[in-house]
């Protein structure tokens, strides 16, 4: 059964149904590495979205020209070019954000979300749908890591987007800004996702039993 794909369905698929962070578990390094400040999450997410949309578009346009044997190096060169582009742009216009994201910007090249989408979507679908997929996946990634970084910033610094959220007496929990806090926060969020998934499964199986 092949469902008809249109711009909206592909976009929503990336944003929610196959959310790259919570469902596909891709691109974990930036997800955990830079999510100590909500602003970093937004910046990283949008930079990745930019690369994802353009790499998807170009790979989709070239999908019938690139020989199968050299596709991985070709994809990498396309992706790396856009990463270099956004890296230089950020260095010129947003130097502070670029500095706080550090090595993670050049490392967008090896973000497995981009690779996975190039291989499993853009290489098989027309350009318009590939843009939709890139947008959906990219924004899905942005929303997830912004959410994660809001939680970490709230408990780790008592702020969200730099605004004081916690009462004065709150003692910031520094561990949230460090490596263990990242792993554990994401782990707890995944528990929530699993709860929802199990609940949906139960509901469906009850429905089937009733039918």
């Amino acid at each position: 059964m092949h469902k008809k794909q249109n711009f909206l369905s592909v976009f929503l698929n990336g944003l929610i149904v196959e959310n790259p962070t919570f469902v596909l578990m891709l691109g974990m390094c930036p997800t955990l590495g830079i999510t100590t400040q909500a602003m970093n999450g937004v910046g990283m997410g949008l930079a990745t979205t930019f690369v994802l949309v353009f790499s998807n578009l170009f790979i989709s346009l070239l999908r019938n020209i690139i020989p199968d044997k050299v596709r991985i190096p070709s994809y990498i060169v396309i992706i790396a070019s856009f990463v270099t582009l956004i890296d230089l742009m950020m260095q010129a216009f947003l130097p502070d954000l670029r500095a706080s994201l550090g090595t993670y910007i050049p490392l967008i090249t090896v973000n497995c979300i981009i690779f996975a989408r190039a291989e499993s979507f853009a290489a098989k679908n027309p350009p318009i749908l590939s843009i939709a997929d890139g947008l959906g996946m990219g924004l899905g990634f942005t929303v997830s890591i912004t959410l994660l970084s809001c939680i970490r910033e709230l408990f780790g610094s008592g702020t969200i987007f730099g605004l004081q959220m916690m009462p004065e007496a709150y003692q910031p929990m520094a561990v949230m800004n460090q490596v263990p806090g990242g792993f554990i926060t994401l782990g707890l969020m995944m528990i929530l996702v699993n709860f929802i998934r199990l609940a949906i499964q139960n509901k469906n199986s009850r429905k089937e039993a009733a039918a």
Binding site: Q171, P172, M173, A174, V175, M176, Q178, P180
Partner: peptide, 10 residues
Amino acid sequence: AVMFVSWGTI
């Protein structure tokens, strides 16, 4: 250890 890392002064 978690609390030591988080609230070192306390």
